[in-house]
């Protein structure tokens, strides 16, 4: 090694990366982490198949099966009523598991590759959340494509609105999974914890039954469940597009109230958005404080 090749701060070549504003750099880093999630999903055929199968079982087996004994009391089939709930349930599992994949990244060492890169920890968290949410939403689109089979019209606006709701729900659930992963560092610990959280969330979100006429305790718990505010707007959107009498609408989709105040759909969605932002922020904070 000759001296004239000496690496010094001024005479040596600068690192290849472009100098960008910090925000642009972090946004780019977030997108890089996001894209990895998408690439991983694409290469994982088994996960793709299993995640698609589960909601199909819900809608066709459970929907049809229960439909024979459950009378919705009107023209609406139970399958149609169930459909928005099944959509939400489908992202519930995929998104939460995508969030917990941070634990797998840690266990398999890859997390370290991200932790030592010249990017902020917050952008790793944001990337994981965004990536998981996109994957989960993408998976649920397959189910969404089947709306016609349960008598819901293929209305582009409706489909777009439902996709938006699904994305918001996915983001919320991925963030929840990521938040868990910042504190629970083993897969053995994370999986039961996740089940413990998401199974009650699914049953207590009104995905399987209308939220009217419930015992007080159940009605309180459902209102505390953030997923409720994803399921109810989606059911609202779907029922709006069906020819139902006002009375039937009110029966199937009783107004969601907070201490007597009828919560508008927009506020419901906003609630989920705020909670999601809180979860992402908390996860980023906890993640940054680990060495």
């Amino acid at each position: 090694m000759s001296t004239d090749q000496a690496a010094t701060r001024t005479s040596g070549p600068e690192p290849l990366g472009e100098v960008r504003s910090d925000l642009a750099h972090q946004a780019r880093a977030t997108w890089v982490v996001t894209r990895r999630e998408l690439l991983r999903f694409r290469s994982d055929r088994a996960r793709m198949a299993s995640m698609l199968l589960q909601p199909l079982l819900f809608i066709f087996v459970m929907g049809v099966g229960l439909g024979t004994i459950v009378d919705t009391g009107g023209d609406l089939s139970f399958q149609t009523f169930l459909f928005p709930g099944v959509l939400a349930t489908s992202v519930l599992f995929t998104a939460a598991f995508a969030g917990v994949s941070l634990v797998w990244d840690r266990e398999f060492g890859f997390l370290r590759e991200m932790m030592v890169a010249p990017i902020s920890r917050a952008s790793i968290i944001c990337g994981k959340c965004l990536g998981g949410a996109i994957v989960a939403t993408g998976q649920s689109l397959v189910l969404l494509a089947l709306v016609g089979t349960v008598g819901i019209p293929y209305d582009p606006v409706l489909l777009l609105q439902l996709t938006g709701c699904l994305f918001l729900g996915s983001l919320f659930l991925t963030a929840l999974g990521v938040l868990l992963s910042t504190r629970i560092t083993t897969i053995q610990g994370a999986m039961p914890m996740l089940q413990l959280l998401i199974t009650p969330m699914m049953f207590l979100s009104g995905s399987l039954f209308p939220l009217g006429g419930l015992p007080v305790w159940l009605s309180v718990v459902t209102r505390l469940n953030p997923l409720t505010y994803v399921v109810q707007p989606m059911r609202h959107l779907v029922l709006q597009h069906l020819d139902l009498s006002a009375a039937e609408q009110a029966r199937l989709l009783p107004a969601l109230t907070w201490a007597g105040w009828e919560v508008p759909v927009g506020v419901q969605l906003l609630t989920v958005a705020v909670i999601t932002a809180g979860l992402v922020g908390l996860a980023a904070r906890l993640f940054a404080s680990t060495e």
């Binding site: 290849l16 990366g17 890089v32």
Partner: peptide, 10 residues
């Protein structure tokens, strides 16, 4: 590629 992107290489 992931690495190059994380380090901001054009």
């Amino acid at each position: 590629r992931f690495h190059a992107d994380l380090y901001g290489l054009p």
